Amino acid sequence: MTEWNDDDLDRIGGAEELQVASQRPDGTLRPYVTIWGVRVGDGIYVRSAYGAGNPWFRRAKAAGTGRVRAGGVERDITFAEAAPGVHGEIDNAYHAKYDRYGPAIVGSVVGAKAAPVTVRLVPR
């Protein structure tokens, strides 16, 4: 499994928004979706604000691969599971980065309901 370099982690993790696209079976990319994402340690994580039924999330999970654009970085990725023990740190990172938008908005991507819809973006 490939890892992010420090510059990519800083740039993607520092970007206000990320754009992700899942890959179709024929190898083409679906349209990009703009979402929030955070860096925790050496990982980049995104969560589905509207649960497991959100179309981008369902497509990403089904495809397993795609692409991310953020902070001037564009990379092919794998949509991977997040380790169970990292969810508290991900919550903290979302709060630190996005709390200024208010609890109703940030509340959609933190807490116990957000853990099952968390994806780690792994570079390919």
Rank of each mutant, 00 (worst) to 15 (best):
K97H: 11
A21R: 10
F57K: 06
A93E: 05
V109M: 12
L9P: 07
Y50W: 15
E16N: 08
T34Y: 10
S108V: 08
Q19Y: 12
P25F: 10
E81S: 13
T28H: 12
A83W: 04
A52K: 08
A114I: 00
G27I: 01
L121V: 01
I105Y: 11
P116D: 05
M1K: 10
Y94Q: 10
L9W: 07
G71A: 05
G85V: 03
D26Q: 09
G111A: 05
A82W: 01
Y101K: 08
P116I: 02
A96L: 12
K97T: 07
W56Q: 10
A62G: 12
P31E: 14
V33S: 15
W36P: 06
A49M: 11
A21C: 14
K61V: 15
Y45H: 07
A104E: 15
A15C: 08
Y50G: 06
I90H: 01
G107C: 05
G43I: 00
V20R: 00
R69P: 06
R47F: 01
R67G: 06
A80F: 03
D91I: 02
P84A: 11
P103D: 14
A80D: 10
A83E: 14
D6T: 13
A21K: 06
G102M: 07
R69E: 13
A82H: 02
P123V: 03
I35W: 03
V106Y: 00
N5G: 05
G27K: 05
P84Y: 04
W56T: 08
E16G: 07
P31G: 13
R67I: 04
G64R: 04
F57N: 09
V86I: 13
A115M: 06
A115T: 06
A80Y: 02
N5Y: 03
A80N: 06
A114Y: 01
Q23F: 13
A114F: 01
A112H: 09
